[in-house]
Write a protein that binds this DNA or RNA. Structure first.
Length: 137
RNA sequence: CGAGUUGGCCAGACAGUCGCUGCUGCGCCGGUAACGGCGGAGUGGAGGAAAGUCCGGGCUCCACAGGGCAAGGCGCCAGGUAACGCCUGGGAGGCGUGAGCCUACGGAAAGUGCAACAGAAAGGACACCGCCUAAGUCGUCUCUUCGGAGCGACCGGUAAGGGUGAAAAGGUGCGGUAAGAGCGCACCGCGCAUCUGGUAACAGAUGUGGCGAUGGUAAACCCCGCCUGGAGCAAGGCCAAAUAGGGAUCCGGUGCCGUGGCCCGCGGUGGAUCCGGGUAGGCUGCUUGAGGCCUGCGGUGACGCAGGUCCCAGAUGAAUGACUGUCCACGACAGAACCCGGCUUAUCGGCCGACUCGCACC
């Protein structure tokens, strides 16, 4: 099957351990954001993109709102992952961590999806500019 | 029909597509195997509060002879329960026309404390304005039938009335009296005794006391009775890379270093295996339970007993979502994290049962 048709989101597509998260935070060469969200990312050298999330209780108090936000982020990543899996100049996909800022739960789901889709496009373009110039990773 | 009380139930529905996760088959790959990975199928997948973490248990580890003290909690009576601060039934007091609702509801004749302002006085009544002048004393007063009478003062009596206050020392009425007073009586209240009903809380009746015995406050100290060891699933158990240091056994026909003039010896150093240790990580605990539903029986009820039947989340960077369409009442509060029983708080609406009041009609 082709990567572009793959909309699944198995465990191979997620950051699972504290190590995975730490390596993204320590080497976040890519960064895109809006007022409610921040995405840090780096190439992972693996086949396919991976997603992690940090939604702090400090910023979003209610568990229901946190769950809702995570679901929306996962869903948008699921649809956007093909763009992050094959980027010119990178051998493999990129790891991303989505951080929620205070007020992220004030957006409705449609607004959130729009913001996220924009951010994923920005991230793909940035990655392409950063690495397509021949700079090895 | 309207207004209300109370008990219980539901928590948008359906279809399609794309996803997540537990379980059970299937196929392929790796592996001696246990098992792991990938693909695909079927099937299960948040709540009435999952919440607050306020109580009570189970479970686990630690501690523990017994008794006392301290500290904290609870507090009408009886029952239910694994247990409770919960629930049920009953009593008492309060609220409501009523159905019903509310109550931290033990003790103030063991002690200590507290009560602003007002008021004379706030706790063994010491009376401010009043009321009274019977008994006693006095008078240079008035009258006199010469016995006294009146008036005034003193000595006193009193707690009816006024006023203050949240509260003023039983209440109301009649008698009584100089005026008054449980001083006497009737009824009510209160205390005590006996009897009756009730398991009891308590209620009723009768008698009795004469109420200066016993004002309030114990979510003030306190007293009495009962209860309570500590920590929590990051509990606890198992596997175990790495790494520090450790123990045992074996191996070189005994190397190297030290001690020494040299040999033996002694100490250190090497390799292998095993033990122990336990970090990262993984597994387990982890969902079959004081379990749900149905029927019958016992009980006013909470609930209990018996039989039948069902298996109904188990994630772990953390699963229930997204999109499209149709319909309607246009969808609130809100997300399991070891598990139960409660309480409390949040909440759009809807459904069912029982009962009360008002109006209309028969």
């Amino acid at each position: 099957m082709s990567a572009s048709a793959d909309l699944r989101f198995s465990k191979a597509r997620r950051l699972l351990t504290a190590h995975d998260y730490k390596s993204v935070f320590d080497d976040a060469v890519l960064k895109v954001s809006c007022s409610q969200l921040l995405i840090l990312a780096r190439p992972n050298g693996l086949e396919g993109a991976r997603l992690g999330m940090v939604v702090a209780k400090r910023h979003i108090r209610l568990a229901t709102r946190r769950n809702r936000l995570k679901r929306i982020v996962r869903e948008s990543f699921r649809h956007a992952q093909a763009r992050l899996a094959c980027i010119d100049g990178i051998d493999g996909g990129i790891d991303s961590v989505v951080l929620a800022r205070a007020g992220a739960d004030a957006l409705d789901k449609r607004q959130l999806r729009e913001h996220l889709d924009q951010l994923w496009s920005q991230l793909a373009r940035k990655a392409q500019r950063r690495f397509a110039t021949g700079q090895p990773c």
